[in-house]
Structure formats: structure tokens, C-alpha cells
Simulated scan of single mutants.
Amino acid sequence: MLTRFARKIGRLFVIKTKFEAFAIIYALALGATERAMVYLQHYPGWPGKLLALCCTGAVFMGGAKIIDAIDLRAQLGYDD
């Protein structure tokens, strides 16, 4: 009984479609740009710009991996 309930809860955290992936990437990008603005205010000059670039670059790399994983799951035929 508990395993069936845990499996249902676990399925909520699986990204199944590209729409869900893009929504998550958008939310990550909003948070990263907000954090980048804080870095630019607290660290003026090139350190702040470097940290801001790292924030936004991480979203690009993570988003690419998320989309690749969605394509791989579709290619392998997972039906979650």
C-alpha cells in the first residue's frame, strides 16, 4: 500500500513532456536572472558580471540536459 502511494507521489516529479521541461527551464531562468541581478549589485565590476554569467550559463546547460533526457526517454520508449 505504501509503495503504491509512494510511486504515485514519485510520478509527480517526473518530467514527461517538452512543455513541462520548458516550464521548468523558464522557472529556473527567472530565478537565475534574479540571482544574477543580486550579484551585479553586491559585486560591482567584473566579479559580478562573471557570477551573473555563471548563473545564466548554468540554466543553458541544465536546460539542454533536461531536453536531451526527454528526447532519450521518448526514444527508449518509457511510458511513465
Results as ranks from 00 to 15, higher is better:
3 T>S: 15
4 R>V: 12
4 R>C: 06
4 R>D: 13
5 F>L: 15
5 F>C: 08
6 A>P: 01
7 R>M: 11
7 R>F: 09
7 R>V: 05
7 R>C: 02
7 R>A: 15
7 R>I: 06
8 K>C: 02
8 K>M: 07
9 I>W: 12
10 G>K: 09
12 L>Y: 08
12 L>E: 07
13 F>T: 05
13 F>P: 02
15 I>F: 06
16 K>S: 06
16 K>C: 09
17 T>G: 04
18 K>M: 04
18 K>A: 03
19 F>H: 12
19 F>C: 07
19 F>V: 12
20 E>I: 10
20 E>V: 14
20 E>Y: 10
21 A>V: 07
22 F>D: 09
24 I>R: 02
25 I>C: 03
29 A>Q: 03
30 L>E: 08
30 L>Y: 03
30 L>G: 10
30 L>S: 08
31 G>A: 11
35 R>T: 10
35 R>D: 01
37 M>A: 10
38 V>M: 14
39 Y>E: 07
39 Y>L: 11
40 L>R: 02
40 L>P: 00
41 Q>R: 13
41 Q>T: 07
42 H>P: 01
45 G>F: 12
46 W>R: 11
46 W>K: 10
46 W>Y: 12
47 P>S: 01
49 K>W: 14
49 K>E: 08
49 K>F: 11
50 L>W: 08
50 L>Y: 12
51 L>N: 06
51 L>A: 07
53 L>K: 13
54 C>M: 15
55 C>E: 15
55 C>D: 08
56 T>D: 13
56 T>P: 00
57 G>K: 12
57 G>A: 14
58 A>Q: 14
59 V>H: 04
59 V>L: 04
59 V>S: 01
61 M>V: 15
61 M>G: 13
62 G>Q: 13
63 G>R: 01
64 A>L: 06
64 A>S: 14
65 K>M: 15
66 I>T: 07
70 I>T: 01
71 D>N: 13
72 L>M: 08
72 L>T: 09
72 L>E: 06
75 Q>E: 08
76 L>H: 07
76 L>Y: 06
76 L>P: 00
76 L>R: 14
78 Y>K: 02
78 Y>T: 01
79 D>I: 11
79 D>Q: 09
80 D>K: 04
